[in-house]
Nucleic acid binder design. Structure first.
Lengths: 202, 202
DNA sequence: CCCAATATTAACCATTTGGTTAAACCTGAT
DNA sequence: ATCAGGTTTAACCAAATGGTTAATATTGGG
């Protein structure tokens, strides 16, 4: 019975909006659908978030930005490149397992509005400096081959993000179930760092 | 003067629709915008393509599917895994350089409607068999380590596609211009196969 | 209990959007 | 010239959609 109202309406809206935005994108999202999913009236939506744009920003700042941004934090305080790579990949895959649609959503919206999402992109700047330092230190110690650290970072992110972005293609190509996909991601927590480290180790 | 009408109206529509669909996605595309971009009336759009869905399919079958599909063909007739990887990466990057928005567009639409795009996905099945054969042959000759060939394929596609999918993020993170991005892609024609082969070579 | 502020709703509005219609405009064959 | 076929257009329509309004319900403080 008692409608356990542990949640504030604003939270319910944000959750609903987040779900809809992530699966339909900005353009594909209908305010009505968000209202339905939150179990409220459409007018109430505009009461809490003046318009679609602000609702979108609310979702983005509130959840997406933080959840995605914290992946970068996994690099902080690392002393060794290989260890950092392992931590980053694990953090990325774990975070995305909770939210498989996120990478595609982010890619989409950053493309749609690069300026508006600049703050989001900047979020991890500090950690990226750490990464660059670790690369150059490893290079000086002769542990890795000479590689453009920026390109290395692109490769790492590619190997983390792409399975989620191309998920339906992958599951279909390989004829695997969603459950098998999940197992594949778990395997990749180990295999991706190995793949990367093998290819850069001197 | 003479409005050089080398193009049929249908072609003009397909080009325009392709451009708009790719930059706005299915949901974000307005029939009016396609009509404008094609320099025609909106009614004429519906005269050639009954509705938005059919227009979308027309674009997809007509151009996207073929252009993307031919990347797979680069694998055909290859005798050696490493050579095949080099050819595939080169084909992928060259094709996408002509059409940088394509990977994100595809990812999006395959997610939106996995069933409807099954035919597109199947297109490269034959070539993927070639790839699997080359991997197992290389494995038997002891040239490469023991790796799940499906995962290898995912990794290759990830390294090819991701720079285009995350392009605005990459250009901003690394503070580079579009021209520098182009140069990076050219570099990757060599560096990506090297990266992959280093990591699988026995 | 009453009041004021906040939360919520039903009904409404203006615009946008996908799609249609009927008429006009070629263009090539007779 | 004219007729038939496909082609193109202006005007139109109904539904969907983002957003507003005014009235009602709820709640916490005095």
């Amino acid at each position: 019975m008692a409608p356990v109202k542990e949640e504030t309406t604003e939270q319910r809206i944000l959750e609903a909006a987040r779900a809809v935005f992530i699966r339909k994108g900005m353009a594909g999202t209908r305010m009505q659908e968000v209202a339905d999913e939150a179990g409220i009236n459409k007018a109430l939506l505009h009461y809490y978030f003046r318009d679609k744009q602000r609702l979108f920003e609310g979702v983005f700042k509130g959840g997406v930005e933080k959840q995605f941004g914290c992946i970068w934090d996994s690099l902080k305080g690392r002393e060794h490149l290989f260890e950092a790579i392992e931590a980053f990949v694990a953090a990325y895959l774990d975070r995305m397992t909770e939210n498989p649609q996120l990478p595609l959503f982010i890619a989409n919206e950053v493309n749609r509005d690069p300026e508006g999402l600049r703050a989001f992109i900047d979020r991890g700047m500090e950690s990226r400096q750490v990464f660059l330092r670790l690369v150059s230190e490893a290079r000086e110690r002769g542990e890795i081959i000479d590689i453009d650290p920026r390109e290395l970072l692109v490769n790492i992110m590619a190997l983390c993000a792409h399975p989620f972005i191309a998920r339906p293609m992958i599951t279909h190509i390989h004829g695997i179930t969603d459950e098998a996909f999940r197992r594949m991601i778990i395997k990749r927590r180990k295999s991706v760092p190995e793949f990367i480290i093998r290819s850069i180790r001197a």
